[in-house]
Each structure stands twice: as C-alpha cells, then as structure tokens.
Design a protein around this nucleic acid. Structure first.
Lengths: 191, 191
DNA sequence: TCACTAACTTGACAATGTAAAGATACCTTC
DNA sequence: GAAGGTATCTTTACATTGTCAAGTTAGTGA
C-alpha cells in the first residue's frame, strides 16, 4: 500500500500535512502543492478529495476544532458544578490558544468562519464550543435556581464569551506583553 | 500631471485603491497588480513606494487605524467625565466595526499585527486606541479618587478591552445572529 | 547645461490555484 | 474470472500573482 498508485487515506494525510505546515511556518505559507508534496503525491491529487484550497482549509479547521472540543469536554467533566465547569472552560480556552496562538489566528482570523454563535434556542448548525457553553450555562441557572429571560441569558452568554474570546485574542496578538496570568483568568466571570 | 510619466502622489493613491478593493471584494482579492492597475500604472510601480505587498498592507492598516482613532477621539471629547468617555469608546468601537466588519478582519485577522497592547507604563510604540483607553482609565481613577496597584489596573484594562474587543469580534463573525444591541452595549463595563 | 536621482516601465521568472484529459487500480456485477 | 464502471491519482497546461533586474523618463540641484 505504501508505494502503490493509490495512497490509502490521502484525505486525512492531507489534513495532517496541512496542520504540520501551519504549525511550522504559519497559514500564509500553506499551499496545496506543498501539502501534496508532503504526502508524496502529485500537485493535483488533492482535487480528488477537496474541490478547492478553501475546502481543505475548512477541513483542517474542523479537525482543529475537534481537538479543541476534546479539551473543553475533558475540562468540563472534571468538575462537579456547572459554575466551575464554565470557569474551567474559560481557563481551557485561554490555555489552548496561548499554547498555540497560530490556531487562534487560523480559526478566527479569516472571514470564512464556519463558526456560528447563534443565540436561538435550537442548537442546530452551531459552533460546538459555544453549544457546550450554552449547555453549561443552562445547567448553571438550574443549579442556582435562577430564572432569566431569553434576552438576559443572551447578554450573559455574550459577556462570558466576549470576555474569554477577547482575552484569548489579546493573548494571541504578537508583541503583547502583560503580567497577566492567562492560564488563570479572573474567576468572577459570571456577573 | 494627469497623463504624465510621474503620477503625482502615487503612494496615497495606492493606499486608497487598496482600501477600495478591500471594501468591494475583501482582502483576499487584493493584489499588488490590481492596485497598480486601479491607479493606471504598471504592475511594478508600487515597488517605488513599498518594498513588498506587506508594506502596502501595513500602510493601509495604519490609514484605517487613523480613521478609527478620529472617531474614538471625537466620541471621547463629547462627554465630560472619564467614565462616560470609556463607555463612549466602547460604543464607538462596536459601532465602527459593525458598520464595516471587513475592517475588523483586516486589522486584527492576520498575525502580522503592528498593534501592541503593551501594559508597561511608558506609552512608547503602543497601539493608539489602547493608549487612549489607558489615558481615560487613568483619568477615571483620578476623578473617582481611586488608588489601584499596577496589576489591578492591568486587569481592569484587559477586562474592558477584552470585553469590547470580544464583542466586536463576535459581531463581525459571519452568520452571527443575536438580538443584542451592538451599538448600545451594556454600560456596566467597569467592575 | 549637466549629472544625479527618484519615479515609472518592460520583461522575466518562480510559485501557486485550478481545470482538462489521461492513466491506474479497486470494486461490483454477471 | 472477465468486464465495465468509478474513484483515485498523474500529466499537462494556463492565468494570476509577488518580486526582481534592467532600462526609461522626468524632475532637481550644482
């Protein structure tokens, strides 16, 4: 299978090679031809699995997001209460992206984000990490015996997400120097 | 001057053409050759004013940032107290970027950000909007008669900035639908 | 008037995304 | 097991792009 005409699992190999290139030299230097070369196939081979460079990039993004989700879910499952879970999510969020800032730029930098932070009640077609946060937040309200309107919930969620995402954004900017401990953010996230 | 060999002020014309292209069809479709064509000069003409495509893009960024700063300073000068000024900044921040989301992606999307959100005491080589916020924040502490340590100040500033920047980030994401009023964010930004 | 230099053009080249046409190997169906 | 179909991969080709090198033009100062 190694040196046969057919690769075996080229699709995943292309994704892995793409991630490798991004980690080594950034998204800008990622080209379809390099990815193909990395997999020892011809430069047009990727077109059997992706219709465009953008499709490959989207596949990589969803691969990285899966990786991110695993860490988030692990963090959430380690604590008993929803309140702690939300704090743990924020911490994991910052840890994940300050560990590899390239992923932040890669995931959220360009405009073609498949992430949808929709606030509507059905979770359909939503950004997985945000779905998780919403679930934890709902549980938090229940555990605390709180009743809030949809609008109030929306504001809370945006506040939490904006705070954490904004911090990650700052932390991932080049040249930023603070004495802030990004891995242990202020815990009073919930207002 | 119109059809002469020398353009007159090609440098600024290139920047304007770049902004136009970004507004019309996004940063991805911005090429040096298109910018040159837009100015009716040969494809290599830009190299008399910029050493690379990146340098042109940086120039465009600083142009857009100037525009942004004008609005921020106007907003700040319209209110008497520093507290109101900070809130006005947040509102202007969100208004500016929800008015033209492309600028947000363009300014903060890629990694080569010249913006430096440095927390050190000297404002040297700092991101102008952030310098303004720090000045307002300092004035706020004075007006309120508050005394805070450098670390506490740092945390406050990061919180404010992260909140506003995070909100703008969410607002500029494609496909986001909320009932949140981005132009009138929650005013309890200061903890 | 005469260099000198900044601004611009022309021509070239390598890297890249992508399409079209052909080659190869696997898989199903008889 | 043969035949045909199809997914996978290669080869070739082309337009776009960033960038460089060499030449051209025009304004500037001595």
């Amino acid at each position: 299978m190694a040196d046969s005409y057919h690769h075996g699992n080229l699709r995943q190999a292309l994704i892995d090679a793409g991630i490798k290139i991004i980690n080594e030299s950034g998204e800008d230097s990622l080209s379809l031809r390099k990815v193909a070369a990395e997999c020892n196939v011809s430069h047009a081979a990727p077109y059997a699995h992706f219709n465009s460079k953008e499709e490959l990039i989207d596949a990589i993004k969803s691969n990285v997001t899966d990786q991110f989700m695993e860490e988030l879910e692990a963090a959430v499952s380690e604590v008993p209460t929803a309140e702690e879970a939300i704090i743990a999510m924020g911490r994991t969020y910052l840890t994940f992206f300050s560990r590899n800032p390239d992923y932040f730029v890669f995931l959220f930098g360009k405009q073609n984000i498949t992430a949808h932070l929709q606030m509507n009640k059905d979770y359909k077609n939503d950004y997985p990490p945000f779905v998780l946060l919403k679930r934890m937040y709902k549980r938090y309200l229940e555990e605390m015996g709180l009743e809030k309107s949809f609008e109030e919930q929306e504001i809370d969620l945006i506040k939490i997400w904006a705070m954490v995402h904004g911090m990650a954004s700052i932390a991932c900017m080049k040249g930023v120097k603070t004495s802030f401990n990004w891995n242990d953010p202020d815990e009073r996230l919930l207002v």
